[in-house]
C-alpha cells in the first residue's frame, strides 16, 4: 500500500538549508520533496511518487555537508540543520557520469524528453566510453498478445518489480535476477510470461520510464512505422467493468485505442489498473 490517500497527522517542522536558502518542511519529508517545495529541479529516474523509493539510479544525488558520499534525495529524510547543495561540482559530476553510463549501456530513445534535457543540462556525452562499450543487448521478448519486454531499454529502476510486488499488484511474477551488469528483470528461470504468475494488469508498463515494457499494440505500430503521437488524442473516462471507478486515459490514434493508462495522482488507482481496464478495450473497436 502506498497510503497516499490518508493525510498524515500534523507534524513538527524541520528547518534546513538547501543551496543557501532556509527551507522549512514537515518532519519526514524527503530531500527530493523539500527541493521540489522550493522549486529546485532535481532529476529522477527510478523515483515514482506511488512506489517505495529504491534509490538505485543515483541521478538525484545531492551533497549533504558532513556526509562522505553524496546522498540520494529521493529517499533521504530531512534532518534539522542539514546543509544541502544540489548543484555543486560533485553533484553535477556524478549526475553527468550516471547519465553517461546509462546512455552508453541501454537505449534511452523512448525515455521521456526530460531525460534528454537532463543529459544536456549536465553535459553528458555517453560516446566517450568508446564505440565498443558493452551494451545490454537482448532480443525483444514477445511471448503474449498484450505486452512486450525489451530489456535493451531497461535501466533496472526496479519500478516494474515494485509495481508487480508489494507496492501495487502483489503478484510477484518478476524479480531482478543475476548480478552486476548481467542483472536483468526476469520470471523464474526466465520462462515466458504465460507460464509465470503474471496476471497482465500491465502495471509494470504503467511505471516503466524507458519504454522497455510496452503495449504490444504500440510495439507493432512502432515496428510498422505507423506510431505517430502527433495524431494521437487522449480521452479520459471511467472504467465500466466494475464499481471501483478507475479513471482511464485512452490514447487514440486513427480512431483506435492504442494504449490505456490511469493518472498517477488519481486517488483510486494511483496509476494502477487491472487487466480489464488496461487491456479490455477491444470491444470498443469491434465495428
Amino acid at each position: 500500500m502506498t497510503g497516499a490517500a490518508i493525510p498524515a497527522p500534523p507534524s513538527r517542522e524541520v528547518e534546513l538549508t538547501i543551496d543557501g536558502r532556509q527551507v522549512r518542511v514537515p518532519e519526514g519529508t524527503t530531500l527530493l520533496q523539500a527541493c521540489r517545495s522550493v522549486g529546485i529541479d532535481t532529476p529522477t529516474l527510478c523515483y515514482l511518487e506511488t512506489l517505495t523509493p529504491v534509490n538505485v539510479c543515483r541521478v538525484c544525488v545531492v551533497e549533504v555537508e558532513g556526509s562522505r558520499a553524496l546522498v540520494p534525495a529521493c529517499s533521504r529524510p530531512v534532518e534539522p540543520k542539514m546543509v544541502v547543495h544540489t548543484d555543486s561540482e560533485r553533484v553535477r559530476h556524478s549526475r553527468r557520469v550516471v547519465f553517461e553510463l546509462l546512455a552508453s549501456s541501454v537505449d534511452l530513445s523512448l525515455a521521456p524528453a526530460r531525460v534528454r534535457e537532463d543529459m544536456a543540462r549536465y553535459g553528458a556525452s555517453p560516446e566517450r566510453f568508446g564505440p565498443r562499450a558493452a551494451r545490454v543487448a537482448q532480443p525483444v521478448k514477445v511471448d503474449n498478445e498484450l505486452y512486450v519486454r525489451d530489456y535493451s531499454r531497461c535501466i533496472l529502476c526496479y519500478k516494474c518489480v515494485e509495481a508487480c510486488g508489494a507496492d501495487a499488484q502483489n503478484t510477484f511474477a518478476i524479480a531482478v535476477s543475476g548480478r552486476g551488469f548481467g542483472a536483468t528483470i526476469a520470471t523464474e528461470f526466465d520462462h515466458p510470461l504465460p507460464d509465470s504468475a503474471c496476471v497482465y494488469c500491465g502495471n509494470c508498463i504503467g511505471v516503466c520510464p524507458t519504454g522497455a515494457l510496452m503495449f504490444k499494440s504500440e510495439h507493432d505500430m512502432r515496428a510498422a512505422g505507423t506510431w505517430d503521437e502527433s495524431r494521437q488524442t487522449v480521452t479520459e473516462t471511467i472504467c465500466g467493468y466494475c464499481g471501483v471507478g478507475c479513471t482511464l486515459q485512452l490514447r487514440v490514434q486513427d480512431n483506435s485505442i492504442v494504449r490505456v493508462t490511469s493518472p498517477l495522482d488519481h486517488d483510486v488507482t494511483s496509476g494502477h489498473l487491472c487487466i480489464k481496464g488496461r487491456f479490455g478495450f477491444q470491444f470498443v473497436q469491434n465495428r
Partner: peptide
Amino acid sequence: GQCVPCRV
C-alpha cells in the same frame, strides 16, 4: 548490479 555508478 543495484546502483548505476557501480553496475555500469
